[in-house]
Amino acid sequence: MEALSHVNYWAAIVLAMIGLYAVIAPSNLIKKLIGLGIFQSAIFLIYITAGKVEGGTAPIIDAGHAVYSNPLPHVLILTAIVVAVSTLAVGLALTVAIKRDYGTVEEDEIDEQDRR
């Protein structure tokens, strides 16, 4: 049962691996960026999970509750999400420019053009 109690972590690991695979394997530049997004989301999941306190509630001070979840990881991940979105934006902008200059977003075709 212990394995199941860590289901979020297992999910994060699986997601991270899928993400990494998707960064490395495809030759399409957009697919790589999608993979990168999945990889980063996996990390967010780890943080959020770590912030959960068993039996805790939302961290708003209230007379009826004594145990709260740790809000700090959430805040950190808000920042990280902003970073991830910016990264994605820059990556997509680069991809648009590459499409404009090379006429393709396939890595092998780009390599071939560069070799020429």
Partner: peptide, 27 residues
């Protein structure tokens, strides 16, 4: 040169993975 774009893209992918690994470690 247009190769600047691919160089930048390559750096973006590798650099983001590197930063993400640091993020995991800090977590």
């Amino acid at each position: 040169r247009r190769r600047a774009l691919t160089a930048s893209y390559q750096y973006l992918i590798v650099g983001t993975i590197g930063a993400s690994l640091i993020l995991i470690g800090i977590g």
